[in-house]
């Protein structure tokens, strides 16, 4: 007989209240995780979408990529040694549309590689978000630092850097705009460990993301909120079951006296915890994914099945720990004391 389930059936409102709180906390956690992922994508999709590998920038740039200048000889040496390596530069800037309206973009140029869009001189490929601002294929855009016009060749999906849409331009145009010969970075995909090159410092993809201004601060704040919500949910279970157990000390004592194993009483609590959590999570996952679909276009919200699965597992583990901690008092209950107490 599943006595845990019998108790839920008899005390529906009590468990409904706990379930509702767990649902609300988990929904809030999913929504904030979606926003954290969305902001992360908005800030660095260009880097996050790359395969695992290592970035290299000049040592004297002091972890600031736009101060980095890769020596041409060193760059050539790396490119010869690693045919899949790519040298790239990123600079924040503006494009003026046909109505002379300025659009903030991150200009990106690179050596030949499948990892970055390649365009001819005078052409530009931009992130799809600019399409929503009225820019179409074939439009001629200008830049204050470039005498020639740039023609929109096409759009790419979800390529952002530092919260700005990416604009892929040709190396010649980039050189003219910023008056530099050298590239800022070299990326070598698929390396297990970083290599040593004269005057260059290596960064894993994750380390490189940390060098993007505001990325760490933004993500840390959101991660902290999510962590607190998870801890709160664990505490909720611990407090709820603790209060329930306090009320049932007499009952547990009698059950122990008649021969029920302590482990069975723990199983009763775990059954209740899993039942409530699974229903609450199913609802919050469904609702947060519906929100993912209907979220306004401009809202940086990105919630994946992988994230919701990870969060669900964490919620179940934390709930299990909370319920188990509260149940530790059951072990201490002596049947004798319970018998000597009056009836609840």
């Amino acid at each position: 007989m599943n006595i845990g389930w019998k108790e839920i059936k008899k005390n529906k409102s009590r468990f409904l209240i706990l379930g509702s709180i767990v649902f609300l906390v988990s929904l809030l956690t999913m929504i904030i995780s979606g926003l954290a992922n969305g902001l992360s994508q908005d800030n660095a999709a260009l880097i996050k979408d790359l395969p695992e590998g290592h970035f290299y920038m000049s040592e004297d740039a002091e972890e600031t990529y736009n101060l980095s200048r890769i020596d041409t000889d060193v760059q050539n040496e790396i490119m010869n040694k690693h045919p899949d390596a790519v040298a790239l530069s990123i600079q924040m800037g503006f494009l003026n549309d046909q109505d002379d309206k300025q659009q903030s973009v991150a200009f990106v140029t690179s050596t030949n590689s499948d990892l970055f869009e390649q365009v001819n001189k005078g052409e530009v490929i931009v992130d799809r978000s600019l399409k929503e601002k009225g820019i179409k294929t074939g439009d001629r855009l200008t830049n204050n630092q470039l005498r020639d016009e740039l023609v929109i060749k096409g759009f790419v999906e979800q390529k952002k850097f530092s919260h700005a849409p990416v604009a892929y331009i040709n190396r010649e145009d980039y050189k003219k705009m910023y008056n530099v010969e050298q590239m800022q970075l070299v990326f070598i995909p698929g390396e297990d460990s970083a290599q040593s090159f004269t005057g260059l410092q290596s960064y894993s993809n994750k380390d490189f993301l940390s060098t993007i201004p505001s990325y760490n601060a933004e993500q840390m704040s959101l991660t902290m909120i999510v962590s607190f919500l998870i801890v709160i949910s664990g505490m909720l279970f611990a407090i709820f079951f603790y209060m329930m157990n306090i009320q049932k000390i007499g009952l547990y004592g009698i059950l122990k006296a008649i021969g029920i194993k302590t482990s069975r009483l723990f199983k009763m609590i775990w059954t209740q915890m899993f039942f409530i959590t699974i229903i609450a999570l199913t609802l919050s996952i469904s609702l947060s994914h519906v929100f993912n679909l209907i979220a306004p276009e401009g809202m940086p919200f990105h919630l994946t099945i992988e994230t919701t699965t990870q969060l669900s597992i964490i919620f179940l583990v934390v709930g299990f720990i909370g319920a188990t901690l509260s149940g530790l008092q059951i072990r201490k209950i002596e049947p004798l004391r319970a018998i000597q107490q009056g009836e609840d």
Partner: peptide, 12 residues
């Protein structure tokens, strides 16, 4: 066992 109070399980 029979005690002074019945101590039945309230949800059964």
């Amino acid at each position: 066992f029979v005690f002074q109070f019945a101590h039945l399980v309230p949800f059964l």
